[in-house]
Every structure is written in structure tokens, then in C-alpha cells.
């Protein structure tokens, strides 16, 4: 087993365009900005849909399920005192070209693989709910 992330998390500013994303986990649900005109999920959030150019956008719930596109086990002491931790790019099942940079938690580094199904969990740090992902185990909901 490895750590669930660096010993210390640098946090995002809750700027107007991203505050919904970084606080979405307060009720345990992941939300992404979505275009109401064409249905495209826009990440990172922007002022306009890059596909159809509509400005009719708003945060929408997603299932929180995704797949590990790729990952790395970090050993370098960028943030001193950290134990090894897993960084991943996870694709979102509703729209797999949306990828979230994240940590995999409660995951053994030797058990992780590209294509592994995962689900979101949140870790609260101050006023930020950091989306993390954990393996979906057989038979679990």
C-alpha cells in the first residue's frame, strides 16, 4: 500500500469559475460543467462550450465512475516528508475525453492498471473537497 497523496496538499483558489467543482464533494457528488445546448462536458470549466459555442452552461452531476487511463507511483520528494503515492489520469465514464488528474486511494501500486474501473471519493481540506478515486471492487455497488 502507498499513501493516498502527498503529505501536504497544495490547494486551489475557489475562483468563481471553479468553486462549484472544488466544493462539489460537500454532498458527496461530483459535478462537471455541461453545455445545455449540446450536452458536452467542459473541463476545465470555461465561459463557452468549445464544441458548439453556446453560453448556456451549468454544473451537472455525474456518476463519479471512471477508468484509469494511466498512472504513476511518485517517489520523488517534491513535497518533503511524503510517502510514495499514486497519481493518475482518470477518464469520466459519461464522456471519456474528460480526464481528471487525481490520486488513487486505497489502491496497491501493483494492482493498478490502465483501464481499471474506479469511483470518486472526496477528501475535505479546509473549504475544498478534493476528488480522489478508488478501485471499484467486485460485487460492490
Amino acid at each position: 500500500m502507498v499513501a493516498n497523496g502527498p503529505v501536504f496538499r497544495l490547494l486551489p483558489r475557489l475562483d468563481d469559475d471553479v468553486a462549484f467543482y472544488w466544493t462539489s464533494g460537500a454532498d458527496g457528488v461530483l459535478r462537471l460543467l455541461r453545455c445545455h445546448a449540446c450536452g458536452f462536458f467542459i473541463h476545465p470549466p470555461g465561459p463557452v462550450c468549445p464544441r458548439c459555442l453556446s453560453r448556456d452552461l451549468g454544473p451537472e452531476e455525474v456518476s463519479g465512475r471512471g477508468h484509469v487511463e494511466t498512472f504513476t507511483v511518485n517517489y520523488q520528494q517534491w513535497i518533503p516528508g511524503s510517502d510514495p503515492y499514486i497519481i493518475a489520469w482518470v477518464s469520466i465514464d459519461e464522456q471519456p475525453d474528460v480526464r481528471l488528474t487525481t490520486n488513487l486511494v486505497d489502491a496497491g501500486p501493483d494492482a493498478v492498471y490502465c483501464g481499471m474501473p474506479v469511483r470518486v471519493v472526496f477528501e475535505q481540506n479546509e473549504d475544498v473537497w478534493i476528488p480522489l478515486f478508488t478501485p471499484i471492487t467486485e460485487g460492490a455497488s
Binding site: P12, D15, I87, T101, C114
Partner: peptide, 29 residues
């Protein structure tokens, strides 16, 4: 400790602080 906006807000909370991490994921893929 300052907080981050812009594109670095996405990797920094996860300790993905270097291009080494990002390119390691390219290699793994």
C-alpha cells in the same frame, strides 16, 4: 501557503507537481 489558480490548480493538489509525473504517465500508457 498560497493557493493556486490557472492550469496548475489541477495537478498541484495531487502532488503531481512536475512534468516528470505527467510524462511518467505518458510512458506508463
Amino acid at each position: 501557503v498560497p493557493r493556486f489558480g490557472g492550469f496548475m490548480q489541477w495537478p498541484l493538489p495531487y502532488g503531481a507537481v512536475s512534468a516528470a509525473n505527467w510524462l511518467a504517465m505518458v510512458a506508463q500508457r
